[in-house]
Design a protein around this nucleic acid. Sequence first.
DNA 1: CCATCAATAT
DNA 2: AATATTGATG
Length: 549
Amino acid sequence: MVCTANDLQQWKDFPKGLKVLLLEGDNASAAETRAKLEAMDYNVSTFCDENEALSVISSRPEGFHIAIVEVSSSSCEGGFKFLENAKDLPTIMTSNNHCLNTMMKCIALGAVEFLSKPLSEDKLRNIWQHVVHKAFNAGVSAQSESLKPVKESVVSILQLQTNNEQHESRASIELEKVSRFGDNDREHYPAPSTPQLKQAERLLDDGDCQEQTNCSTEKESGEHDGESKFIETTCENLNAESTPRQTKSEITLVHKEEDFTDASKYESVVFRHPQNLKVLKNSDSNTTSANKVGVRNHKCEIKANRKKMKVDWTPELHKKFVKAVEQLGIDHAIPSRILDLMKVEGLTRHNVASHLQKYRMHKRHILPKQEDRKWLNQRDPMQRSYCLQRPIMPSPPYYPNHTLPIAPLYSMWGQSRNQTASMQVWGHSGYPLWQPTESWHWKSFPGMHSDTWGCPVLPPPQPPNFSFSHNIHVLSNANAADYMFGMPSSFDHYPAEEVVDKVVKEVISKPWLPLPIGLKPPSTDSVLAEISRQGSSTIPPSSNGSIPS
DNA sequence: CCATCAATAT
DNA sequence: AATATTGATG
């Protein structure tokens, strides 16, 4: 049995009085959200302080039915914490940024939905469905006090409904369908995603979810036409025989992106199952029209969106890219070969080419600009070329493996090309120890050195008591959940300028000293910067850095 | 077809 | 404003 428009109308009335805990910060946006919710007859309580909300939630005196919690760069942890404590309270997470890892983590922690902001009315209108779904899904354990009444009222509504239609059936089954029809309805009511919690957790543990995203859509659907398909799987298997509880491990994550006539984009996380993938594959080869989605066709619809998937060059992906480029050497690093080496499913040559373009731009524009500035004071062209070709950094002759960068222009990247050698020399795996590999941010850090683009560079060696504990906390705590909003907050605490100065001076004066295990030499850039600051007098004698020829 | 660069889009 | 995609060109 399929829900009709009448059913929908009836269900639209349901939210009246539902108590919403809105935890969104103290800003205009929160007020706006609240207003929207109230306009829809939700009963909203706003709490700006996470701790306050947490205490409210633990006692839950007023019996909230659902919570809406924002995760942002500043209050991500609070959101996670809230989720952990929310238990049976259906919680919708919202966010301004589209960090997949954060999304994953939220879902893994039990969020029923992850909504991108701004929150349109469409997104908010039917959040109550999560309440319903949860009320039935969670069972009527003693814990779900707040949801019990929901279940009861839903059951009564359903009974009413089925009576009217002279369909005598068990309410729970009806409910199951009802809570699913949202998927098929043209308004695309949010689909509860809680049941897949475990899978999300597993994916999260992989730490490499991005790749999953990439590979999920593309394997069969055709790299040949260079086009990835956005897949929207609204199909729900309504066969009574098939169990809706999915325990498959191969669940992949896709972004569901739909365009609506009102141009408002609904975005949420859905999990796609292998079964559906099959269906999709078949229908893809048979039916090409994506627009034949009939309004009345509620049964099972699959829409293959031709829109290209936007490749998110995550640090992991970029790492692969850089590795491939390094492996090929700068001369042979062409998109197709890079693509081959990267072996990332779903990535097109175009994507790589584009990224390569950017990569080169950085090399050609950012670096020379900085270096030019540094060599303003240097008149001797010999010295210039010396500096270009030779990192001033300790490259002690007694390190046999330490080869030198060759091409002047690429000295920065040459340095990273020599990463293998550096690894042996410096005895680390290529990444700073204090930073999980999944979470380093490969953008240039303001105030940091720009050769970090694509290559994480450790801050200059730190005095024993210098602490990055803040970073460690941020980065590891979230399980690398968000390199995105880690960016501004995680690197607030650079080494103080004096510290850098001191270290750089030290290094310049004693270039022969090996660095502690696990540390990478300060970037060439930082040293050069320091030299230019102090004048060229401090440049170590050229015996230390003659050009190998 | 491919790589590259410029223009465009998000 | 940064960064990804699309388009044009050789």
